[in-house]
Nucleic acid binder design. Structure first.
Lengths: 266, 266
DNA sequence: TGTCATTTGTTCGTATGTATG
DNA sequence: CCATACATACGAACAAATGAC
């Protein structure tokens, strides 16, 4: 709305579609388009700030805001005394930083009480090996646990899960119900391994009677089936879990923040 | 180290070690420390720009540069007319980087063909406003789309979804079935906004007959119900989607990599 | 409802510092 | 040393969003 006509700013004003965008945003998009169109090629320098300022009849500040945007997207690199160079033709696939992903895991386990129902040692058959990303025949320790909300006394569990660790780490399963800590950090602390990667698969399922019973849920009701595999730096599976989370008691929330390429370097 | 300038007259110069750092960088560091120390708690507001300006005896520009830094790290969120609130206590040392999260989204849409079934304009009622994180009464454009695997001709859809964009971006819905691109990048390109954060909720559901029909699925079969909200840097919802992904056709996979504690700054 | 004060967002102007060739 | 170009910093003003009255 009330967009006051700027004297001589015809260049930017013309390119501004839909009054919503600010000048620097408009300029940023314009430059992006020019870069993508090949007017400024990768490795080449774009006009100086002063030149852009004149060309679009805006203040230097506005130019810098626009350039800052493109720099933060990795399209441009600026060096004092030299100029501003095109680094990439288009924005590379951006990384996402999961805020709340690890935190959420930690909070979940910290907010719940774990009860070990059953334990056993087994050798991974073909099916399990596939699902846990280990070799067939690998010796594993398994624990079947239930998670409860700590406040309420012994009501319905929030989730049930199978936890698997390699035979050499089997000891940690003795402590998982005491320490109010994620199992993977227990493994890390007790055995000096360092989890570097986590893989996760989520499927929707309906509970079979055998699965529903320990959860005190109705057979046939829906649940999230979440399996996770934890790997160390050599890509060995260190730990895995397969859990069932009834829909009426649990929803899986994640928040991603696009990672800004660290400024002022490279 | 950090001495605490509490009342009025402590300049930044005192806290500046060596003098190597710029004022805004020094201020940014100082604020970070205060947040980590708990002086400003998560959810609380930090002093206004004017107050910080006075307290540290710097220009508003310098204050804003410092705040911009913290905002880009996800520690702060600012909203015009309200203030600047602390969002997180620290940039956690162990961060998870979702590899495959964004990539996976992109691949999914690139690997599928989208068909727009229906479109309409609507005002968000209380329920929808809640689910999409917008204000009640917000005008929205809605598209109901089906996703197919491109190879097979007109078989069963992989997913159905409702896509919502703000009224001023409604135009992009005209192109979503043509461009083999994620909708959010269309919005970014066409309107010069930049998605900075994505929030996602996953629940397991059973399909109601109305939902099952367009999917050519059996009513009562299970599906993942995934809603996502896309936000810009001012925390405004730019786009949202609510999708149903039948379990037998789709599973949600994510891979997280723990970020190495590189830490180079300061 | 609408007005008003507050707070951040955008834009201009100007000056000086720093890195480079 | 000097000219160039980006980096930092100060000041000022208005716009837009919001919440309170």
């Amino acid at each position: 709305m009330s967009l006051k006509p700027v004297n001589g700013a015809a260049t930017l004003a013309a390119a501004r579609r839909g009054g919503g965008a600010s000048r620097y945003a408009t300029l940023a998009r314009l430059l992006t388009e020019e870069i993508e169109a090949g007017r400024y090629k990768v490795g080449q320098m774009i006009p100086t700030e002063a030149e852009l300022q004149q060309r679009f009849d805006v203040s230097r500040h506005t130019v810098r805001e626009a350039l800052r945007d493109l720099k933060s997207q990795g399209l441009l690199t600026a060096r004092a005394g030299v100029g501003t160079v095109v680094r990439a033709k288009s924005r590379p696939t951006r990384f996402m930083q999961g805020i709340g992903t690890l935190k959420e895991l930690v909070q979940f386990v910290e907010a719940t009480r774990m009860k070990v129902v059953k334990r056993r040692v087994l050798l991974a058959d073909a099916d399990l090996a596939e699902r846990l990303a280990v070799k067939e025949g690998q010796q594993l320790h398994e624990a079947f646990v239930l998670r409860f909300l700590p406040k309420e006394k012994e009501t319905v569990p929030v989730a049930s899960m199978f936890i698997y660790v390699r035979a050499e780490h089997g000891g940690v399963l003795d402590h998982i119900d005491k320490a109010g800590q994620p199992v993977f950090s227990l493994v890390e602390r007790h055995h000096g391994v360092r989890i570097v990667e986590v893989s996760q698969q989520i499927v929707a399922v309906t509970l079979a009677p055998v699965e529903a019973r320990p959860l005190k849920a109705r057979a046939g009701s829906t649940a999230l089936h979440i399996s996770r595999q934890y790997f160390d730096s050599q890509d060995r599976m260190v730990m895995a879990s397969i859990g069932l989370y009834p829909s009426d008691r649990f929803s899986h929330n994640t928040k991603f923040r696009i990672q800004p390429p660290d400024e002022k370097d490279s």
